[in-house]
Each structure stands twice: as structure tokens, then as C-alpha cells.
């Protein structure tokens, strides 16, 4: 279980990205995070595994305060939490299998990884993961030779190598077309439902949130302005919509 308590993040430039944000994520949930660009979604996700150091507040992951962890404790927490990115963040020149295997680095003795060695079990696991995501034939292609959707699958495969209890997905479909978006979110949904991996996913489109999330939070200018179940999301009316997305926002296709 993940519990965020009074999380505040102020950038050195003085920008307040998150202000006093508190919420809980139960195990096995698919949490959608909505909000405009700049509302603090990415910052929130990155604070959870401390890619960004929060200024104040606590992040309790399965009873451990992430903000208090030292470097080696932090690495152990991080390897339990996979992360998927909007721009995939693959090493473009490396081949797919290496990118996938790099998800295993948290479990690999550093000396071994220096000479590019993973054990047999890891290699087999990487192939299995790729098979599960439907791209085993791409294992030895260079990452940048893949299409956007395939690259995001490699990104998910890398996260899966961590045997994660939770996956943080930072706008995983924002760079993809609608068809691919459903296919990628479908993969995340499968992992959520079959493997019981908690998913925390920031999304732009409300219809995607309504389709996939079991719970939703909304951020606006760093403040938590919405928290509700799947049903609550279905019931979002224009009034509520404007609370989250601002006065000038118009609802499309609703």
C-alpha cells in the first residue's frame, strides 16, 4: 500500500509543483491521475520513487518512509516500483534485450553489470516478458528501429523485469495514436488484473481514465482537487470538470 501524506515539492526556482497532497493507493488498484500539463502529475510520480526529492511530507510504501531511506534502502524500494515514461526513455542505440535486461540491474551485483553480464535466469525471463508483450522477434533489434508502440512495450518489459509491486506510468500513451494508446493501456490493465500489480498512471484524456481506472485523483496547480472511485469519474459533470481543468476548459465528445 502506498500512502502519500502532506507531500509538498518546491523547485529551486520557487515554483510550487505540489502543495500538501495526501491520498492512499490500495494494493491492486489502477489509479488514474488527471490534470493539465504543469499541474504536477509528473512531479508527483517522480517524488514517489524520489527521482525528484520532495521538499516536505511523507511517502509510506508498505510501511517504509521512502523520504527517509538512505541510498541503498532507496535502491531496494525503487526496484519494487517499475516506471514507464511518456518518451519511453530507452537507450536508443542499445538493442531491445539489453534495454529490457537493464530493468534487472537493481538485483544484479554491480561488478557483474560492469562487464555486461546477466545470469541465464534473467535472460530467459527477458525473453518471456517480451513474448508476453508480443514482441519476442524484436529482441535483437536496436531500440530506435522500433515503432512508438513497440518502444513503449519495451519500456513496460523493462519495468516488468523488476518484478514490481507497482508501476508508475507517466503519461505512457501521450506520444502514441489512439489505437496504440488502448493497446498499451490494455497491457497495463492486464498486468494490473492478472498479476495484481498496482498501477498509478497519469493520463490526459478523461475517456481513457473512465475506461481503465478503478480510482482517480485530479491535480490542479499542485493541489489535489479531485479524488473518487470509477463511478465518481463516470459522474463528472461540467462543473466538476472545470474544477479540475480550469474555467476555460471545454469538454470534448462528452
Amino acid at each position: 500500500m502506498l500512502e502519500i501524506k502532506n507531500l509538498t515539492m518546491v523547485y529551486p526556482t520557487g515554483t510550487v509543483a505540489l502543495k500538501d497532497v495526501s491520498f492512499k493507493v490500495e494494493d491492486g488498484e489502477f489509479l488514474g491521475v488527471i490534470g493539465l500539463s504543469g499541474s504536477g502529475k509528473s512531479t508527483l510520480l517522480r517524488c514517489i520513487n524520489r527521482l525528484i526529492e520532495p521538499t516536505e511530507g511523507q511517502i509510506i510504501w508498505n510501511g517504509v518512509d521512502v523520504t527517509e531511506a538512505d541510498q541503498s534502502e532507496l535502491r531496494n524500494i525503487r526496484r519494487e516500483i517499475g516506471m514507464v515514461f511518456q518518451h519511453f526513455n530507452l537507450v536508443k542505440r542499445s538493442n531491445v534485450i539489453t534495454n529490457v535486461l537493464s530493468g534487472r540491474l537493481g538485483y544484479t551485483p554491480p561488478a557483474w553489470s560492469l562487464i555486461n553480464r546477466f545470469n541465464r535466469a534473467d535472460r530467459e525471463k527477458a525473453i518471456q516478458v517480451l513474448e508476453r508483450l508480443g514482441i519476442p522477434e524484436k529482441a535483437h533489434n536496436r531500440a530506435d528501429s522500433l515503432s512508438g508502440g513497440q518502444q513503449q512495450r519495451v519500456g513496460i518489459a523493462r519495468a516488468l523485469m523488476q518484478d514490481p509491486k507497482m508501476i508508475l506510468a507517466d503519461e505512457p500513451v501521450a506520444s502514441l495514436d489512439p489505437v496504440l494508446a488502448h493497446s498499451i493501456l490494455g497491457s497495463l490493465e492486464t498486468l494490473n488484473q492478472e498479476d495484481g500489480i498496482t498501477v498509478m498512471c497519469s493520463l490526459h484524456f478523461l475517456d481513457l481514465v473512465q475506461r481503465y481506472s478503478t480510482k482517480v485523483i485530479g491535480l490542479r496547480d499542485g493541489h489535489l482537487v479531485f479524488e473518487g472511485s470509477k463511478e465518481d469519474v463516470q459522474k463528472i459533470d461540467d462543473e466538476r470538470f472545470k474544477d479540475i481543468y480550469g474555467e476555460e476548459a471545454e469538454r470534448l465528445g462528452a
Partner: peptide, 21 residues
């Protein structure tokens, strides 16, 4: 590109592993 560095840090890789990969 700082993306892969971020991604590898998120997997729990240490500084040396991040540099190598």
C-alpha cells in the same frame, strides 16, 4: 538524452550501473 538515466535510476540501478547502461 537524460531519459534513460532517469529510467535506470527508477529501476534501482546504482550510479555505476547507470553510467554503464
Amino acid at each position: 538524452d537524460p531519459g534513460p538515466i532517469e529510467a535506470l535510476q527508477a529501476t534501482g540501478a546504482n550510479r555505476l550501473q547507470t553510467i554503464v547502461y
